[in-house]
């Protein structure tokens, strides 16, 4: 591997899922919590993405960002800017972002009609 063979090997084609136009909803409770998080600054966006990993293979990734270098779809819901990466759009179409108010395991939750199963903590799905 110090011989240059690895450097010259061409990339293999990984699966490129079809990009779908994402429709999503945000529950009233989640919108209230987002309003607290955003404050008056609506230039920020909620990035809703998916990473590999977790007990079920895919993990939700929620971030409040100013911008991202990922190719995203921008959706505006009641003044909230939501960004969904195209690379994971096929996994996120139809989701509802909810907020569960409890001491343990509370926080933002994703209700995903595309998920066949999810792990107990709700952070990952398959």
């Amino acid at each position: 591997m110090d011989c240059g063979t690895c450097e010259t090997a061409g990339p293999v084609q990984v699966m490129q899922p079809e990009v779908v136009n994402v429709a999503l909803t945000i529950s009233d409770k989640a919108q209230t919590m987002l309003a607290d998080a955003f404050g008056d600054d609506r230039s920020m966006a909620l990035l809703v993405g998916v990473l590999s990993g977790g007990c079920s293979g895919y993990m939700y990734d929620l971030q409040i960002v100013e911008e991202t270098d990922q190719s995203c779809q921008e959706i505006t819901i009641n003044g909230f800017k939501v960004l969904v990466p195209n690379a994971s759009s096929h996994l996120l179409d139809g989701i509802e972002i909810d907020y569960v108010d409890r001491l343990m395991g509370g926080g933002f939750k994703i209700i995903n009609p595309n998920a066949d199963s999810s792990c107990g903590c709700g952070e990952s799905f398959a």
């Binding site: 090997a9 293999v12 990984v14 699966m15 590999s52 990922q70 195209n86 690379a87 996994l91």
Partner: peptide, 23 residues
Amino acid sequence: LFAHISPRILGQDVTISNATENN
């Protein structure tokens, strides 16, 4: 293995090359 990992790369910064034939 590739069928397992490939759909999970999504938008992550991961590219894979096959160097088997060179070694």
